[in-house]
Design a binder for these strands. Structure first.
Lengths: 274, 274
DNA sequence: CCTAGAACG
DNA sequence: CGTTATAGG
């Protein structure tokens, strides 16, 4: 006997705004067991009760304590977590609302919102510092998982398109933050060196996209002029059990409620009993 | 034979917003000959063509050059002005979008947006400095008008309620900016000492109000919990010809398009031919 | 082109 | 409780 585990990640671009535009309905109909949110941009106290404590879910909130109304991640799980943690042990970033993780039986699930930047700005420097520190964390996470015989899922908005197939117009974007050689190389290290797997790409090795973010500017969404920057990254054992990986391009709802779409991966996997 | 001159003043609280909510329709139907606007909060280049150059009107724009998106006054006239001037000769305030005047045959019409403040803040100090300087200007304006045999109309948002009948709850507001003893005394000097006339009050000496501003907070408008702070102030010769003075409480339109309402005064007056 | 805080009223 | 500018994306 085996069962399914479904994990979804979505950058909501302001949960207060998203809640009024379809997020609530989307959550009510999702079949996911775990949902990772990024860019919540609110503290729990600023959200409606049905959003803070949705019926049937346990939620770990990790708003930014350093900059109000920015960043902020959360992890929703139908099962009660065995352990919850905000931040990854970084003095600079633990209060910035960019990382939270929960342990469920046999698996650690994390929600990541990697900084975005523009070339030549302090934000890009911050992104690079984050990447350097976070690589170490990913390494430790694998080691701990191996010791404990558990799997790892790190999902979220990585703000990097890995390969040419991961964005619409790669040639024009080679010097743009999010597709810089050093950013792509860093993501390669996460995958090749640390041994994590980009599940959606693994399931669709030859696909263009599927993109998960489209700028609000111009007609990017209508023309599918997007980037694939939201990933469900897992340890190899779990990746081998991934059966489907889809981008919910229509957000499962008539109107868009974020500039990102949910990315959902299904695993044919039976967690241990405790 | 005699004819009518109609003058209206209204604080639009952001002309871009107001234009989308009923200002355009209101202007199209007004019978005024001159319209003075305050709190335009935009430069002409930020406004739609029909708003910048409404058909049948000459317009003097005086946006704030010191603080984008703040203050800003304008004077619209059906007749072409003989002379236009921005500011009243103040180093501190001439670029702040708070005063503009035009000469029409026999009459000078000015649009004034007096600073608003809160007790104990630098804004209140600014208001007081403005008042001091502007009193001198009003004096010179009368002298010049007398020399040239012309009348003067200074209309706008004076941000002062003069008497107890000029605001809903005067007792609770005695220590609030806009109804301070020194502000009321200053307005008394404008009227009693310089000899200007508050035309609407002169026409309705015993009325409560009529208020011209209602806070957007709470149910102030529905409860008519307002202040009369928008005045059409004129030289006595013209004031004697004022026949009606009304606040267009419904903005002459189904929905409110500003927190102020237009104040319109009609004069039974025939201007000289040139 | 959006979201959000913040200044100002 | 609005309008607007600005940061951030």
């Amino acid at each position: 006997m085996s069962s399914q585990v479904i994990i979804t990640t979505v950058n909501v671009n302001g949960l207060r705004a998203a809640s009024g535009k379809g997020y609530v309905e989307w959550l009510a109909q999702t079949e996911a067991d775990v949902v990772c949110l990024q860019e919540v941009r609110a503290e729990p106290g600023q959200l409606a009760a049905e959003v803070v404590e949705p019926a049937g879910w346990h939620v770990l909130w990790a708003p930014s304590t350093t900059a109000k109304g920015r960043a902020g991640v959360a992890v929703l799980s139908r099962q009660e977590p065995q352990r919850m943690k905000v931040g990854f042990g970084s003095d600079e970033f633990d209060g910035s609302g960019r990382y939270a993780e929960i342990d469920l039986p046999g698996v650690t699930v994390a929600s990541l919102y990697l900084p975005s930047g523009e070339v030549g700005t302090p934000r890009q420097d911050e992104k690079e510092r984050f990447m350097a520190e976070f690589l170490d964390h990913l390494k430790r996470l694998r080691e701990r998982a191996a010791e404990q015989g558990r799997e790892v899922v790190v999902c979220g908005d990585w703000n990097i398109a890995h390969r040419e197939a991961d964005l619409k117009n790669w040639k024009a974007n080679q010097k743009k933050a999010g597709f810089l050689p050093e950013e792509r190389a860093w993501l390669s290290r996460v995958l090749d060196e640390l041994g994590y797997v980009d599940t959606v790409r693994s399931l669709h090795p030859d696909a263009v996209g599927p993109y998960s973010w489209w700028s609000y500017r111009g007609r990017a969404f209508d023309q599918d002029s997007g980037w694939r920057i939201d990933y469900v990254v897992t340890t190899p054992g779990l990746a081998a059990r991934a059966t489907t990986g889809v981008v919910e391009r229509a957000n499962s709802h008539p109107e868009r409620w974020s500039d990102h779409a949910p990315v959902t991966v299904t695993f044919d996997w039976t967690p241990p009993l405790s």
